[in-house]
Design a protein around this nucleic acid. Structure first.
Lengths: 220, 220
DNA sequence: TGCAATATTGCGTAGTCTGCAATAATTGAA
DNA sequence: TTCAATTATTGCAGACTACGCAATATTGCA
C-alpha cells in the first residue's frame, strides 16, 4: 500500500477504507446497543451480524470475538513512537521512572476521541460488565512486555549514570524491578479506566491518568 | 453435609471425596502433560478426557474450561478468614496498608504445596504460555472487589482515627485510593507469580511475595 | 440390605471460531 | 472506459467449547 503523492496524509482515504470503517462502526454499534439492552452474555454473533447487515462470517473478519467488538479495535497494538521512547530513556536518574511511564500512557491510552457516540455507549456497556476491563488489560500483554523491556533499559542507563565503577548493578535485580514497575504502571492505567467507566460525568483519560499516577506517589 | 463425630476433622475423607480428588488430579495431570507436549492450544477437552479416563461431559463437572484445569481449582474463591480481616482492619494508621495487604496475600496466594508433581508441571506449562497468568488474575475479580472494599474500610477507620473533627475525609476520594491500592497489591502478586513461573529454581510464593512487596516500597 | 444423595455418562443443542472456495466490489493502470 | 489485480464478503462445512437434561451407576448411611 503506497502513499499517495498528496503530502496531506490520507486526505482521501478511498472508498474501500471508508466502507471498512463504516462496517467496523456498524458492528460496534450493533454489539453495544444489543449489550446495553440485553447484556453482552445474551448477545450472539448472529444477532450482531443481523443488526449490522453483514454475514456472521464477516464479523470475524473484523473482530476476534464479541468482546473485542465491544472494546473496539485495539489501538496501541503496534509499537511506540520513537521520540517518545527516546525521551523516556534519556530522562536521567533524577526524573522518576513512573513519571516517564505516565507520559507514555498519556499518549497511548488516549483512544479515539473522534466518535463520541460510540465512546459513550462503550462506557455504558463496560460499566455493566467490568470483566471487560480486565480483558482489555489482557489484550495488552505485548504492550506490557515492551514496556518492561523499556523500563529495564532506562533503569540500566540510570544505574550506569550514578554508579561508581565497582558497583555493577545486578542485571537480574534490575529486570525484576523493571517488571514490577511496569506492572504498577499498568495498575495505574487500569485504575484510570475503572474511574472512567464508573464516573457519570465524562472525565477525560488524560486527566484521570494524571490523577491516578499522582495518587500512586502517596501510597507508599 | 454434617461433620463426623470424630473430633479430628476429615480424618477419613470418605471414598467419595477421595475419588473426587483423584479424578480432579487425573484431569489436571492429563491437561498438563498434554500441554507440555503439544501446547495447550493443540489440546482438546476430548484429548484430556480420553487420557484421564472420563467422559468429556464429566470434565465440565470439574472445570469450566481447559484453562481452568491447567490453573487448578481456584483457591480463594470464597471469602477471607475472619481473624485475618480483623487484624488488617484494626492495624491502625501507623501500619502501612500495603503491609497488611501483603499479609493477606501471604495467606491466600499460597496454594497447594501438597502436590509437588502437579506444582512443577503447572509451572512448566504456565512458563510457556504466560497468558494463563493473566487469566489467573482475571478469575480473581471477586477477590479484588472484596479487597477494595476491605481497604476502603481500613482507610476510613484510619482516617477517623487521625482526623480532626472538621476534617471529614471525602468518601469518594477514599474509595478511589482504596481501589488503586488494591490494584497495586494485585500487581505485586502478579509480579510474584511471574517470578515464580520464570525462575528455574523453585522459590516459594511467600518468599517471592515478600520480596515483591518490599521492592514496591522502593519504587515511589 | 435398601434407600437417599451424589457422580458419571450419553445425547442433544447452542454458540464460537476458522478454513476454504466462490463471488462481488474497488482500485489503479492501460 | 475497460480490464486485470487486489481485496472484501459470503456461504458452507467442520472442529471445538459449554451446558441442560435424563438415565444410570456409585457411594454413604441407617
Amino acid at each position: 500500500m503506497t502513499d499517495t503523492i498528496n503530502p496531506v496524509a490520507a486526505a482521501e482515504p478511498g472508498l474501500r477504507e471508508r466502507k471498512r470503517k463504516a462496517t467496523s462502526r456498524a458492528i460496534q454499534f450493533a454489539v453495544l446497543e444489543l449489550s446495553r439492552d440485553k447484556g453482552l452474555e445474551n448477545v450472539t454473533v448472529d444477532d450482531i451480524s443481523r443488526r449490522a447487515d453483514i454475514s456472521p462470517r464477516t464479523f470475524f473478519n473484523y473482530f476476534d470475538s464479541k468482546e473485542s467488538a465491544v472494546l473496539g479495535e485495539s489501538h496501541l497494538a503496534s509499537s511506540l513512537p520513537d521520540d517518545l521512547v527516546e525521551a523516556f530513556l534519556s530522562a536521567g536518574p533524577e526524573t522518576p521512572v513512573l513519571d516517564g511511564l505516565r507520559d507514555i500512557m498519556l499518549v497511548v491510552a488516549v483512544p479515539d476521541t473522534d466518535d463520541f457516540e460510540l465512546h459513550q455507549l462503550r462506557k455504558e456497556v463496560i460499566h455493566h460488565s467490568p470483566h471487560l476491563l480486565i480483558q482489555r488489560i489482557s489484550r495488552m500483554r505485548v504492550f506490557e512486555t515492551e514496556l518492561t523491556a523499556l523500563v529495564e533499559k532506562r533503569m540500566t542507563a540510570d544505574a550506569l549514570a550514578t554508579a561508581r565503577p565497582n558497583e555493577t548493578p545486578d542485571q537480574a535485580t534490575l529486570r525484576d524491578r523493571a517488571s514490577l514497575t511496569a506492572l504498577v504502571a499498568m495498575a495505574a492505567m487500569r485504575h484510570s479506566w475503572g474511574c472512567w467507566a464508573e464516573s457519570a460525568e465524562s472525565l477525560s483519560m488524560p486527566v484521570l491518568l494524571t490523577r491516578s499516577f499522582r495518587e500512586l506517589r502517596t501510597l507508599i
